[in-house]
Design a protein around this nucleic acid. Sequence first.
RNA 1: GGCGCCGUAGCCAAGUGGACUAAGGCGGGGGCCUGCAAAGCCCCUAUUCGUGGGUUCGAAUCCCACCGGCGCCUCCA
Length: 479
Amino acid sequence: MTLRLHNTLTRRIEEFHPLEEGRVRIYTCGPTVYDTAHVGNFRTFLFEDILRRYLKWKRYQVVQVRNLTDVDDRTIHAAVAQGVTLRELTLPFIDAFFRDHDRLGLERAEHYPRATDYVPQMVEMVQRLVERGLAYEADGSVYFDISEFPSYGELAQLDRASLREGRETGDAAYDKGDARDFVLWKGGERPEEGDVAIWDSPWGAGRPGWHLECSVMAIEHLGQPFDIHSGGVDLVFPHHTNEIAQAEGATGEPFARLWLHAKHALLDGRKMSKSQNHYYTVDDLVDQGYQPSAIRRLLISAHYRGELNFTLAGLDDASRSVERLIDFRRRLRASRSDDRGLEATRLPELADQALRDFETALDDDLNVAEAWGALFVFVREANATLDRAGERVPAADADAALTAVDSIDQVFGVLALAEGEAGAVSEELRSWVEAKLAERAAARAAKDYGRADAIRGELAERGIEVEDSPAGSRWRLVR
RNA sequence: GGCGCCGUAGCCAAGUGGACUAAGGCGGGGGCCUGCAAAGCCCCUAUUCGUGGGUUCGAAUCCCACCGGCGCCUCCA
């Protein structure tokens, strides 16, 4: 079966075939490290994590680049305001990014280049653009001349003539030939930027324009052209539009073949926004007692091209649904029996069906909602099977089901996260619990239910929840 | 003004011309199981897909209009 993805360039769903057999090269726009990323930022990163994991699930080798933007207006202004260097400013936020990244169970990309490590290469690209007549210098700055690049704006389906002329946003500070041209190199006097971001160039001291880093670092790590470039919808224009102009203008080669864009997450129906203080970070939510696995589940519950409304009520729902999965897996493990006399069950058949439906769903432009549906149908039917089998099924059947669950979780990554959150159970606690349960089993056998309930209460006080079943009592630690 | 998206049950969310008598999750009601629970299972919870027209043998799915919400339009994931 073939993966099909929606290409922003063509606005169509296309079959995906990598340029190089069996190997996929992806560039994913990363965070600007001027502050802590919020869960809306992670919605996009998580969508890309699903893409990455699913490609690996389909047996592709993946090379992914995720840049860290450490030089732009916001990092510079913050550094100046705090009287620190760019490195000093961004390091804590880079650390915070990786902490949240790992907490939400994102797989690590192969490369995390920082813009400030690639300034010489950026200068070279600007030089090539000037040489090719696609850029011009004015007053120490260099601009891209969009009139020399006929396909400019194709990605965003822009009508060039209707692009607004000279919006006021600081453009007055530049001496552009055309207000629609964009800056490649920012030179000249910029007192408000202090001296935190100044590099030498053939046009004098200055610093690179924002879009340059991605063109340069993508080519540096992935070559050109590469397979997939992705980011949030807001980047379609101008960021990705300009990346294409720079990279293709400088080299004459196509840049990226397939462009994927994730819609934004809303918070309580409104745009998440740092400036309006309308957002949550992972820390905010963890402090309120939410598990990262639930945050992950919520953020990957809806299709990436649709908006996702993030609410605390939604997070509560997500927590419950994760619990359902955890309970299911625990129940499967407990029901696994080596007794040869047991009758075969439908579990292997149900597991196969689940995997087929899961793949069909994700092949269709990463339809995660439908893929979750396939998983939960399996959970319901397998639970019914366990009911009928009296909690004891042949080991091979249980293994087939467990393997399917694990396989699906290779992509969703929610159970793997939740497992780590459950809290380690020490040997000491384990043996204490086992002893208590034995005592309780004896009490129940003697129909001394008062005693049995007292023991259950005692266990509950230490966070142990007991579930009785025909095959014995199960227990688990609930935080 | 330009480009684009969305409106499906109490909430979240798939489905985008015929196996829809509309997935799945959460919540709610009833039942089974249980010593009681928990978990699980079964049944019910949208005769209908923002509204009004139209196209079609057939529309939640296509077209038009209207209403409502959202995003981008030069440094926001």
